[in-house]
Each structure stands twice: as C-alpha cells, then as structure tokens.
Write a protein that binds this DNA or RNA. Structure first.
Length: 741
DNA sequence: CCATTAAGCCTTTTT
DNA sequence: GGCTTAATGG
C-alpha cells in the first residue's frame, strides 16, 4: 500500500499518537490519507471501535466507510470505526443521556422548514414592528443559528443593547425554544449545543465518551463551527490523539458559522501538534492548477501555499459567452454530447455545477429534451416535497405524539373537515394549558364534543398505526417501509391522491414510493426512531438506486465539496451570480465566493468549462451581467474564449472584450431550439422512455409511462392516458418526455 | 369549510 | 418566472 503514497502523506498516516494538523490542498489525496490512517491504526493494535472519524456530509461518511471496508477487506475485522457527521454523532450521544438535561430521549429533529414555520408563527405574535423594520423569518432564524453555533446563551444575549437583539432576537428566541421544548424537538444547532452542555455539566458522560473514542479524526476542519470545535476539543483533550485535516482555501461555509480560526485555535489548544502540508496534487492537469492557484492568490486572508503536480500540462480551459441562459444550456448539452461522441467521455465523467439551485432548471429542461440522463444532487429538495413531509409528519406523530408541528401539518391532510377555526381552537388551548395537542385530542374532557368528533378519525389513524407497528413490549412488528404503506392506506392519503387522478397526484404518489424504497434499503431491524433520525439528518443517500447508471451530475458548487470529475462545467460565471450579488460589496464575502470558484475549478481532472451569458432573466427581470471577475483573474493564455455569433453585433460586449484584451472565436448558433412551450413540435424520443416518465403524446396529450417491455426502437410501451391504458411501439411513438422519473 | 384565483415573495450556499 | 400563501366566493 505504501508505494502510492508520498513521504508527507506517509508521515500523516504513521504518526499514531499525539495531535496532528494536516493542511491538505485540493486533490492532494486527503481522503486517501484519512482512510489509510484509520487502517494503519487498526493494524497497529488500536481497536476499531476506539476510533471515530467525523466528516462533513453523510455522503462523505458513507464513502469513507466503503473505502475503509475495502482496505480492511483481508483482515476481516468485524468491528468498524464510528464514522459520521458531527450531527449524527451528537444524536447518538444525546439519545443516551439527554434526559439529564430535562429533554425526552424520544426527541425529534426539526429541519429548516419546521424551524421557519415556528419562527413565522412567533413573529406574528410579537408586537407589530415599525414600517420598514420588519425582519424576514429566514434572517431571524439564521441569526439564532449563528449565535447557537457560537455557543451563545440567552443570558448573554440579554446583556446586549442593540435594538435587533432586544426587540426581535431575544423575544423570538424565547418563544421559539418554548415551542421546541413543548414538541420535544431539537434543531440542528441544539444537537451541538446540548452535547457541549452535557459534557460540561456531567463529567462522567464526557469521561465515558473520551474512553470510548481514543482516536479522533476530523475531515474538512476549515468548515467546522465553534460548537463543533469545542466538542472536538473536549473529547480529544484526554488522550490528545486528534487528527485534523483542513484547507483554508476551501472554507465555504462561514455563513453558517464555520471559521478557519478553529485551525489556529487548534494549534494553540494542542500545543505540540505536528503540522503537515500536502501540496502535491494528484487530480488535475497543470493548466487547471495554474488557473486555480492564480485565482485563489487574489485572496488576502489565507495561509499561502502552492499546489503543484506531476500530471500532464493538459488543455486550455474554455470560456463560452452565451447569448442568454437558453443558449448557455444549449451549449452545455451540445458540448456534453460532443464530449461523449468524439472524446469518449461517459456522462458520469461530467459535472455541471452552479452557484444557486435556481440555475438548474433551464439546464434540466435541455437535458430532458435531449434525453440525456442526469442525476441531480438536490439534498434538501426531495425531503421538502409536500407529500414526503406529510408522510414523515404522520410517522413523527406516532413516534412522538408531543410533536405539535407535525400534528398541525397532517391533522387535516387529507381533508377531514377540520378548518382554520377548529385548528386554532385546539392549538390555542394547547398553548394556554401547556398540554400537547395529542393529549387534548385523546382526552374527552378537554375539548368540546364537536371537536372530539371531528378529530376522532385522525386520532384513530395514529393509534391504529401505533398498534400495528409496536407490540406490547415496544418492539416493532413490521419494517418501516410497510408502516409507510399502512400509513398512506389508513390515513386516506393514497386514496386522496388516486381520486385526484392528475399527473401531479401521480408524481406525488411516486415520491412516496421513493420514500418507501429509501426505507427498504435499510435493514429490516432499523427502528422507526432511527429512520426518522436518518431522515432529518440525512440529506444525501439521494436515490442511490438510480445514480449507478451513466448519468451527468448536476449540483451546486457547495455540494461538489470532496468530489472530483474528469470534466467540470461551471455555468453562470457572471458578476452577480459568482460572486453572488449579495456579497459584491463586502471584500470578505467576495473572498468566500472566490474560494467557491477555486473549489469548483479544482474538482476537475482534465477539462474545465466556464459559461456566462450576456443576458439572463431572473425573476421576470432581465439582467445584463459582466463576466465574473474570477475568469478575468485567471491567466489569459490558459483560457480559450468563444462567443455566440449573435453577440458579434453587441458593441458594448465587443468593447469590453477588447479592453480586457481577450481574443475570441465565434461559435455559430446551434440547432437546439429554445424549449418551445409545446407548439406541436414533438420529438420522437420514445426509444429512451422509462417506466414512470411523464410524457406528452402528440395526439393524446399528457400521459405517463406505465410499462416498458423490451429495449430500443422495438420496445413496447404502455401509456396511461387519463384512466385509459394504451399500447404502442417505441419507434413510432410521437412522444415528448416532460419529466424523467 | 373548500376550491379557485390573485397576490407576493423569491434565489445564496446545508447539517 | 414559478411556487407558496392570502383572499374571495361558492
């Protein structure tokens, strides 16, 4: 195993005891070092269960587990190190002992939407703010979140004198946490805060975990916040075997409270820490590295380092200036198509990455129209779907009946004749008496007979589900996926969707099926609590079933962290998007945007494309953005610029390019038409349809594919048009795919 | 109480 | 430009 590692990497792997700090540049084999180190520890007599590794995402944790398992393969050790995110690690600790802090061990975790719902409601109860000084729920929530990440307490906030803290932050904070407590819920930040609290107040708990994990490894340390740092410090303090990997140039989460100060602090708190620098890059071509280095060198606040590589020089990076976002998307799909056809890349080699989620839609449209398979990494979105949240709410209510927010969500879904008035009465009563809503609903004396009658069906659904899931001893009788099936049956949710019969309802039903299949991936023994836990902490695990195929990856720059691709296409390289317009006037924020650009470029092994547009429509308005300063910062000789021929007439643009001394080539307009809102122009793409696709049939209109038998042009396709089923042959089917499953 | 329509807010990035 | 929320009438 040693021949693939350089001396610095080996040093990092072989320092068994004592604190180590590794500054690892992009593509310097950081994951390899981490995994090999874990294996090395085990091979040198450290018990696997004494090792813990913390990663930034669930995906990264899963990846590391797989790789360690692979390396350990021969030794056949059954026990594995504990590898997870900070949040799930804290979840594990809190499930054991949080009752000592006066919380229920059955706590649920509220995600951002849950939180926003509460904040909105709380803001409504506050005295009306002065005209123009209202705060958005999101702003308030993020303020609370940052304070908690820094382990600030309510008492500390109360000492502050500014109006925002006095009039908004403190009152909202108080009411928000009352609400959480009543619902027996924690938010993400609470998980960290309470873990620290538990460690501070109960030395025996801390001691237990210090003994449990004598070796600690942390990845992406530049993106940890203060609370996470404190947890690491407390846990590692005893044995001091703390191994930290980070790169200040890849700090892209400071908006969430992450601070590279933690790296400096680590050197102070663990005085004799060995510091190792990994500067050899194994990923990218020399040209790509040159560009990345040049861009990041414009940041003032950084620890200087210079990545180098023995890799080949490679090709110039390409910058295409598109007419608008449709032309940009057209260029992207044309180029992907060419890369696959002429240069023998696979779709899975290519990533299209962007600053904001909103940019993905147009690209997706074009990919769908070309029947190009893609895989959207949209962590939150699946779980943000109404139907998925509804079902999870049902499960949460039966797991933790004190969860008022979830009850509110599904009490009248499907419709049970419980309107706003009734709902308000019940929740008002709950707030006034401090009793959980579910208790009110089950106790005859607490609510009027009329309300009891209205809500009885809901209560019955919950109780029946509880009975079907748990036996007398509290053991589960059926797997979670089965419970979901029973849930949509008993609650009438499935019936509600089926009776609607619209395409949309069908999609919703399919999303619930998707949720079931996510549950099915688990071992049958995984409990409801563990499933819900995973669902709230989880973002990744994104349809793994489907992503195995050859598909283009679409994601935000933030979610590319830790990944690499032969080809990276960065779209929307414009002032206003990258750097984002909300950061443009704050140099510190612009530096973070520059780090984002750097992270994006350094994901690439062989090829980088930048695209920008001359005009782009953003919520109805047309924006004329200049090319991103980050492209201008790159060495000109390494960027080949192409512009859309329609832009030749654009004098302003030509002047700009001249001023910047950019020479360019013209690219003629492509055959790809802008996605017309179906004006009778339907392409024959039926050859590639899959079960579950939404399509438009030239004659019958909107339909969904219920079955595909066989492959290629001769496949037999069954379509569901309204309630009717139709059969047709793929090669003659005048279909346009609207939405891929 | 619910379905349809009008208004309005939105788009940074995620555990 | 699209999706969620508020208002309105049935």
């Amino acid at each position: 195993m040693t021949e693939t590692l350089n001396p610095e990497q080996l040093k990092a792997i072989k320092l068994i005891n004592g604190p180590v700090l590794v500054y690892a540049g992009a593509g310097s084999g950081k994951t390899r070092v981490l995994t090999h180190r874990v294996v090395h520890l085990i091979q040198n007599g450290v018990a696997p269960e004494k090792i813990m590794a913390v990663t930034f995402t669930n995906k990264a944790a899963a990846e590391m587990k797989t790789r360690i398992k692979g390396l350990l393969g021969k030794t056949k050790s059954k026990l594995m190190p504990h590898i997870s995110t900070y949040h799930s690690f804290c979840g594990m600790i809190l499930r054991e002992d949080i009752d000592r802090l006066g919380f229920s061990k059955n706590f649920v975790i509220f995600d951002q939407n849950d939180q926003l719902g509460i904040i909105k409601q709380v803001l409504g109860t506050l005295p009306a703010p002065k005209e123009g000084s209202e705060y958005k729920p999101k702003t308030v929530l993020s303020a609370i979140s940052i304070e908690k990440s820094n382990l600030k307490t309510l008492a500390e906030l109360k000492k502050r004198k500014d109006t925002f803290t006095k009039l908004v932050l403190v009152p909202v904070w108080e009411k928000y946490h009352t609400h959480l407590k009543q619902s027996q819920a924690l938010d993400f930040d609470d998980m960290l805060v309470h873990t620290v609290e538990l460690f501070q107040k109960f030395p025996d708990v801390l001691a237990r975990w210090q003994e449990r994990f004598k070796y600690i490894l942390v990845d992406e340390f530049q993106d940890t916040n203060h609370a996470q740092y404190v947890i690491t410090k407390m846990l590692g303090h005893k044995h001091r075997n703390v191994f930290i990997v980070g790169d200040t140039d890849q700090n892209i989460y400071s908006w969430r409270g992450a601070s590279i100060q933690n790296l400096n602090q680590f050197e102070k708190d663990f005085r004799n820490a060995k510091v190792i620098l990994l500067e050899q890059n194994y990923r990218s071509t020399q040209t790509i590295l040159e560009v990345a280095n040049k861009i990041i060198s414009n940041n003032t606040r950084r620890r200087k380092k210079r990545l180098w590589t023995k890799n080949l020089k490679g090709e110039s990076l390409i910058h295409y200036i598109a007419f608008d976002e449709h032309d940009e998307a057209g260029y992207v799909v044309d180029e992907i198509e060419r890369l696959c056809r002429v240069e023998n890349f696979k779709k899975a080699d290519i990533a299209v990455i962007f600053r904001t989620h909103a940019q993905s839609r147009v690209i997706e449209d074009f990919l769908i129209r070309r029947s190009m398979k893609y895989h959207m990494v949209d962590s939150q979105r699946f779980y943000a779907r109404k139907e998925v949240k509804d079902i999870l709410s049902y499960l949460r209510v039966l797991y933790n009946p004190a969860d008022n927010s979830s009850i509110q969500r599904v009490l009248n879904t499907p419709a049970r004749g419980i309107g706003k008035v009734t709902e308000n009465r019940i929740f008002e009563k709950s707030r006034n008496t401090g009793k959980p809503v579910f208790e009110l609903l089950t106790n005859k004396r607490l609510l009027t007979e009329k309300i009891q009658k209205l809500t009885a069906p809901f209560v019955q659904v919950i109780q029946r589900l509880q009975n079907e899931y748990w036996d007398q001893e509290g053991k589960s009788k059926i797997p979670v996926w089965k419970l979901i099936e029973r849930c949509i049956a008993l609650s009438g949710y499935a019936a509600m969707l089926q009776s609607e019969g619209t395409d949309e309802a069908l999609t919703r039903l399919e999303n619930i099926m998707e949720l079931m299949s996510i549950a099915k991936e688990d071992d049958e023994s995984v409990s409801l609590g563990a499933f819900l836990n995973k669902m709230s902490l989880n973002t990744s695990d994104d349809e793994d079933s489907d992503s195995k195929g050859d598909a283009i990856a679409l994601m935000t720059i933030h979610s590319t962290k830790g990944l690499e691709f032969p080809v990276v296409i960065m779209v929307g390289m414009e002032e206003g998007l990258l750097p984002h317009y909300q950061t443009q006037f704050d140099e510190e924020l612009v530096e973070e945007e520059r780090r984002l650009a750097y992270v994006g470029v350094t994901r690439a092994k062989q090829k980088v494309y930048f695209t920008s547009t001359n005009q782009r429509s953003i919520f109805g308005d047309t924006w004329y953005n200049e090319t991103s300063r980050f492209i201008k910062e790159a060495p000109r000789q390494y960027i080949a610029t192409f512009i859309n021929e329609r832009l030749l007439e654009n004098n302003i643009l030509r002047t700009r390019l001249k001023e910047d001394k950019v020479s360019f080539e013209v690219r003629s307009m492509q055959a790809t038409p802008a996605p017309s809102k179906d004006k009778g122009e339907h392409k024959v793409v039926a050859v590639n349809v899959k079960k579950g696709d939404r399509v438009i049939h030239k004659i019958w209109g909107r339909a969904s594919v219920s079955e595909v038998r066989g492959k290629g042009p001769d496949a037999i396709i069954k379509l569901k048009v309204g309630t009717e089923e139709r059969t047709l042959l793929a090669k003659y089917a005048p279909l346009e795919v609207v939405r891929k499953r």
